[in-house]
């Protein structure tokens, strides 16, 4: 399963207050409404600039701070297909798998891609490719149950399909 899209590049420490401020996310339960405030802390019009399938690339510690799942939800529902970052804060990373927003940790990736160019994210090999240079970068491996969960599209889809959660069959 390969996703291809245009790159939106960000720096280090993009925290969840930047991704969606509390006062917006705490007043709705509608993911499309949340999407209108995606990246509000840096660019209130960001959601209007996205083409469906675009990919975010960021530096260290993406998604730090609050546990707010509205952060990955806002990113997913404004049309971003995946987030590739040099590292993720732990709760954001978990939330990515839980809601089915592909999150891949690729060291030093910001040095390899440029704003606006095309890249691919491969959920089978758990790697990314920069089309201009044809270079492939392996993402940090995740346990099989998480890779599988991501391909299925998150916990809601998984539960609908199997009527249980992935860890209920783990030993």
């Amino acid at each position: 399963m390969t996703l291809r899209g245009r790159v939106w590049k960000f720096g280090d420490n993009i925290n969840t207050d930047i991704i969606i401020p509390f006062r917006f996310k705490s007043r709705t339960n509608d993911p499309y409404e949340m999407a209108k405030y995606c990246m509000y802390g840096l660019d209130p019009d960001f959601h209007e600039k996205i083409q469906k399938g675009d990919i975010m690339v960021a530096g260290r510690n993406f998604g730090g701070g609050s546990s707010r799942e509205q952060a990955p939800v806002a990113i997913k529902y404004c049309g971003i297909a995946a987030v590739v970052s040099e590292s993720f804060a732990r709760i954001f990373y978990r939330n990515g798998f839980a809601i089915g927003l592909p999150v891949m940790e690729v060291p030093k990736i910001t040095k390899e891609v440029e704003q606006g160019e095309e890249m691919e994210v491969d959920l089978d090999t758990w790697s990314v490719k920069v089309l201009r240079t044809n270079k492939v970068f392996e993402a940090k491996k995740v346990p099989e149950f998480l890779a599988n969960l991501m391909k299925i599209g998150g916990l809601v889809e998984y539960y609908k399909k199997y009527q249980q959660f992935p860890w209920q069959t783990m030993k």
Binding site: R94, N95, I99, L155, V156, Y159, F165
Partner: peptide, 14 residues
Amino acid sequence: IGSTEIAAVWATGQ
């Protein structure tokens, strides 16, 4: 953790 995972805990306790 986030909302979806806490929902799963509410359902199963695990």
